[in-house]
Nucleic acid binder design. Structure first.
Length: 346
DNA sequence: ATCCAGGAAG
DNA sequence: CTTCCTGGAT
């Protein structure tokens, strides 16, 4: 039997043998230091699910300080209100958070819960995971936070904490690495109190056991931690370097109306942006600005040209300035529009 | 200016 | 294994 197979067995690991004092230390620390996030003071699966989807790939500060969570719950207080909302309004509420398929999937999910499940949100993590936009992590998070089930929910914080605790010297983003981390996470969850346990591990990763800063002196479970160089863990594949690309868009304003183009691809579908054009259609003298922004593995230089033309392409539409405020527009284009407002009246 | 962190789906 | 986005740290 290989070393890998052995470490998957919980009884073999010393950390798990003498797990009791270490678990209590972490839980006691958490009870003293827990932040009172709004999703921690509710057990409503809808409110918890919304927070988890928003927090996918997104910092707590963004979701809370910029009011996304509060505004969303005001606009869509429950599954039914969300299910019956217009997609354009759903995307508008999500604007600025990025990864807009999260919003479309959450919208879809609400329709499924309301109209296919009789407005009964499932409790079984496996059933939760079948919902659109919900993967293993989010399913575990909702099952443990809303229903207090003893299931693992490994987000990046918990993966980091576990990798360090067990001094895991393999990549955590390979399928075997994921398997090992999730197996340890499952071994660690106490049979009652899944909600507190997962919250505590997560909080530790957010506060004392960060990706680029560790406060091991203050860590309640430092004595049990197997890791030698915390900042070297977890090990992940390096990201490929960003490649530069140019895009050429037009500011086409006629009679105070501006032309915008709707995204039709499967991912940013439904978002509006400045119309794309071929570079060779553009006249250099009409270039009014170049904005740079990053998107996935690209560094984009957005070249904006003044371009008056009544002829429009497919999926393009004229909007008044007031209407623009109500449209879902990705952040780089929203920024560009704000900066270009003074060009609108010429 | 550049780098980095952060889940799900295709 | 790649694609989707953004804000904050460096």
């Amino acid at each position: 039997m290989s070393q890998d197979m052995k470490s998957l067995k919980s009884e073999d690991h010393p950390l798990l043998d003498e797990s009791k004092p270490f678990k209590k230390l972490l839980i006691d620390w958490f009870s003293e230091n827990a932040k009172d996030y709004p999703w921690r003071t509710t057990s409503d699966p809808y409110e918890i699910l919304v927070s988890e989807i928003m927090l996918q790939q997104t910092q707590v500060a963004t979701v809370l300080d910029r009011g996304f969570y509060r505004r969303w719950l005001e606009a869509f207080p429950d599954f039914k209100k969300l299910a019956d909302a217009e997609e354009v309004e759903v995307l508008r509420q999500w604007e600025g958070l990025g990864y807009y398929s999260r919003a479309r999937n959450l919208h879809k999910l609400a329709k499924v819960v309301v109209y296919d499940m009789g407005n009964q949100f499932p409790k079984d993590p496996k059933a939760i995971e079948t919902l659109p936009g919900v993967g293993r992590y989010t399913a575990g998070a909702v099952a443990s936070f809303a229903f207090d089930l003893p299931v693992p929910a490994v987000d990046a914080n918990i993966a980091r904490v576990i990798a360090r605790l067990f001094n895991f010297q393999e990549r955590i983003d390979s399928s075997s690495g994921q398997k090992q981390i999730w197996a340890w996470a499952a071994d660690l969850v106490p049979s009652s109190g899944g909600r507190i346990w997962n919250s505590a591990l997560m909080e530790l990763g957010q506060t004392l056991c960060g990706p680029r800063k560790t406060l091991c002196d203050e860590c309640p479970i430092a004595a049990s931690c197997q890791c030698v160089d915390p900042l070297d863990l977890p090990i992940k594949k390096l990201k490929p370097k960003a490649t530069s690309v140019d895009e050429h868009v037009i500011l086409n304003v006629i009679n105070g109306n501006i032309l915008l183009q709707k995204e039709t691809g499967s991912r940013r579908k439904g978002m509006w942006k400045l119309p794309l054009r071929d570079e060779n259609e553009m006249v250099k003298d009409n270039l009014i600005a170049v904005h740079k922004y990053g998107i996935t593995r690209y560094k984009v230089s957005m070249h904006i040209y003044k371009f008056e033309d009544q002829n429009i392409h497919e999926n393009e539409k004229w909007f008044s300035l007031d209407e623009i405020d109500l449209l879902p527009i990705p952040s780089p284009y929203r920024r560009a529009l704000r900066l270009l407002e003074n060009h609108f009246n010429q």
